[in-house]
Design a protein around this nucleic acid. Sequence first.
DNA 1: ACCCAGGTGGCCC
DNA 2: GGGCCACATGGG
Length: 216
Amino acid sequence: MAHKVNTVYGELLRAFGPQGWWPADSPFEVIVGAILTQQTLWKNVEKAIASLKRAKKLSARAILKTTDRDLQRLVRSSGYYRQKAKKLKIFCEFFLNEYCGKITEMKRSRTSHLRSRLLSIWGIGRETADSILLYALDKPIFVVDAYTVRIGERMGLFRSDGYEHVRNYFESNLKRSVPLYKEYHALLVQLGKNFCKTKPLCAKCPIKKLCRMIML
DNA sequence: ACCCAGGTGGCCC
DNA sequence: GGGCCACATGGG
């Protein structure tokens, strides 16, 4: 019999369909988005990315050539714009110094090594590091965010014992698969954005069965 | 007017 | 290791 975590995945997929994350034109854009979306609505991040594109600033070299003030102005819509402009520059410097600004170079490193290097960068925490590993570099790391923890706890999948504990839960109970990790995390976010916003078990709730599972 | 969003670092204990 | 705070815009 399948583990509950797999049943939940099936229900999510049935309710919402494939999410096709991460929406971006390039791995570098994924990284920029991962930094900009920290504690921020994706809608506002899209505007910032559009601004960067319009200004031809969607590359590590271009970002480093931009003045702090200009970069802050470009990412303003994503909130925490001073911090985020600084984070982008610090990451770009790391990316150019360590990997010649090439994603393919970065992918060569071992996942665990990459993860600790990313975590050592100011402004890159666990979720951002793992988003980069999974969605930009195709490494088999399960991304945990606030929704993942909340939903998983409500569904009784696990008792949250911190980020690494939850990540380990998914990685050890799921088939080790990059596309699965990508899709599952995206679906959890999709559910997180929906539940509690629509009335639980209301007539048009697209996720009745899921609502029952999480006992709303 | 208030509350939150696909977190993180710094400080305190 | 955990608890609290600043960081900031935009939309419900």
